[in-house]
Design a protein around this nucleic acid. Structure first.
Lengths: 345, 345
DNA sequence: ATCCTCTGTGTAATCGATTCCACGAGGAGG
DNA sequence: CCTCCTCGTGGAATCGATTACACAGAGGAT
């Protein structure tokens, strides 16, 4: 592969001049510029990003470590992050942690070794020493979706508190009283926050949240299935199950169906995180939708601000309830449901 | 960030010795090794992958350019590719082309600039000059899922011909005669092959495939919706619609539902590419499942073989039909459907 | 005692870019 | 005509690693 030296030789100039042309430095004669450009063209020369990075100490690359690529929510987040980064001239390297702290550490380490300019993380756990150390050492970093307390890192996330309150009101109005939740790992903020918001909303309606109606999941479908089976085996099963993410909702649906029960007649189901498929499940699933695209864009903006020396800003955006039929029917103001869908691309 | 020089100074040896220790070269004394390791530990030193890559001319990184991350099929493919690559000591950088040739080119160019060791591509179109040139120039490359004819690059893909034949038999047995297909872009192999397999299978049953029952889609949900609307507006609409990928099936479902029709009573629906959600749609969707994980692993194996100087192998694996209820009921041998599911993680 | 072979180590070149510094030519101002 | 800038350019240092080569000293063979 042709290097800058080859171009210089071909154009009859020094490598310095070639470099100046390529970086549009002002002081290059029109003649030299033309010759260099011609040489670049004829050799099919492309600058070696590795060499450039070594010298300039910047890679124009962002790392994104997400908890689970198979979760459509994170896929969409990743897509919007890449798009926003590309618009600003950055590439993105995605690391998939599969909800495993060891894998998360692996990716963080690899990304750091590659000297990425900044790191976007949705932490799988309470924070590994590695990540905390990186933050303290000054690696530009932004938490997205989930975060870790006590670390001075901007956070970009959705606030589901009001939406959860709306959900509980909705359920209450439909006559449901025994409400259960499939929680995410307590070590994650989204895992514990959603339970807290749910508990708080129940309290406002004078409803209890007994321990047997809090199932411990891990944001994966299998755990949703397991927890739901336990709920259904209770002497007094819940009226509605609220899954803290869409994969656990899928598992819950599996379990309910395996038991031969119908949604919503026998038991209701709701989920955090909305996805296009929820419109077509049997029945369509009531869910809390996050402004995923906007989160990704805001996260990139914050990280790039931090990288380029501007003060980064934490951002919190509201999530919103999308009512469908999985918790019961007869919702007059719900007839226009289709128009409020976030239409799939 | 500490460099190899700092480690050398701290350990009281030369950088050469540090490098030898780090690369487990044999000729280093136990004493020196211990001092270096101690220095590495105390400084928290991590080798700079950028510098190492420049010198060794290898990045231990694979590029993966896929057509659409939002498509669960590609997400799963990406996941298995990353997993297989990691097991072999490689990282993966994913580029999402969103079915846009210009974006695909952008990613290929960026990956090449970063001097990745090899490239895995699922081409969005018939092949840009850039990609063909890269292949000719000797960049290790493997096509996965889709490919481009006339280029000497190994191909790892699934063969759906028999599965499509099984699907058509199934439909025929259920009494369906007017069968329509939502095709993918003709420029992609999967776009044209699936139509050909479908046409061929119909011919075996003495059924025609008139032009009005071939809709031109682009593998995105919106096109599935549009094409299906056109089908439904025909004087004689089809009995069944077969979508060439899962996103177009989603769009088809949207269109059918918007028209107030029921699946499968009013019209049947089947899809290429199976995903966990198809079990829970209303009704569960009959689909052709690809051995996605195995494809990803085989692709990485082929690419790494090529990179490391072994002869790479093209691989073709069979896809298989998974019958559910979206094309009609009364299938006695179909009662054990649940056991044949590929269970979601 | 001499010579040879190993072993362990350091010096320096190298990868492909960027960029500081110096220098020559040419124009402006005195 | 001399001085001083400005402009365009090239030489060389540099980033952080790897590795060829040289060499010192230990130990074995003769």
């Amino acid at each position: 592969m042709a290097s800058i030296k080859d171009v210089a030789a071909e154009a009859g100039v020094s490598v310095a001049t070639v470099s100046r042309v390529l970086n549009s430095h002002p002081s290059v004669s029109a003649d030299a510029r033309a010759r260099v450009l011609a040489a670049v063209e004829s050799l099919g020369y492309r600058p070696n990003a590795v060499a450039r990075s070594l010298r300039t100490d910047q890679t124009r690359t962002l790392g994104l470590v997400i908890s689970d690529v198979l979760n459509p929510y994170f896929t969409e987040l990743a897509r919007s992050v890449e798009e926003a980064a590309r618009a600003l001239g950055y590439s993105v390297i995605i690391g998939n942690a599969d909800e495993r702290p060891d894998l998360q550490d692996h990716h963080v380490r690899t990304l750091l070794d590659r000297r990425i300019d900044g790191l976007l993380v949705s932490p799988t756990d309470g924070g590994s020493p590695l990540m905390l150390e990186a933050a303290r050492a000054g690696t530009p970093m932004v938490f997205v979706d989930r975060w870790i307390a006590g670390v001075d890192v901007p956070v970009v996330r959705a606030d589901g508190q009001q939406a959860v309150r709306d959900l509980v009101s909705h359920l209450h109005r439909l006559g449901h009283r025994r409400l259960a939740i499939i929680a995410g790992p307590a070590a994650t903020t989204t895992g514990s926050e959603r339970v807290e918001a749910f508990r708080e909303a129940l309290r406002e309606h004078g409803l209890p949240l007994p321990d047997e109606l809090i199932g411990q999941g891990d944001f994966q479908a299998a755990s949703g299935r397991r927890v739901t089976e336990a709920f259904l085996a209770l002497p007094e099963p819940p009226d509605v199950v609220f899954a803290a993410d869409n994969l656990m909702a899928l598992g819950a649906l599996d379990a309910i169906r395996a038991r031969g029960l119908r949604v919503p007649q026998d038991i209701g189901l709701a989920a955090f995180d909305d996805i296009p498929w929820f419109v077509h499940t049997d029945p369509p699933i009531t869910a809390i939708a996050q402004p995923t695209g906007e989160l990704g864009r805001a996260a990139v903006r914050a990280l790039v601000d931090r990288i380029e020396g501007r003060p980064p800003e934490s951002v919190t955006l509201p999530a919103r309830l999308v009512v469908r039929r999985s918790c019961g029917e007869n919702f007059p103001e719900n007839s226009s449901e289709n128009s409020s869908e976030n239409s799939p691309a």
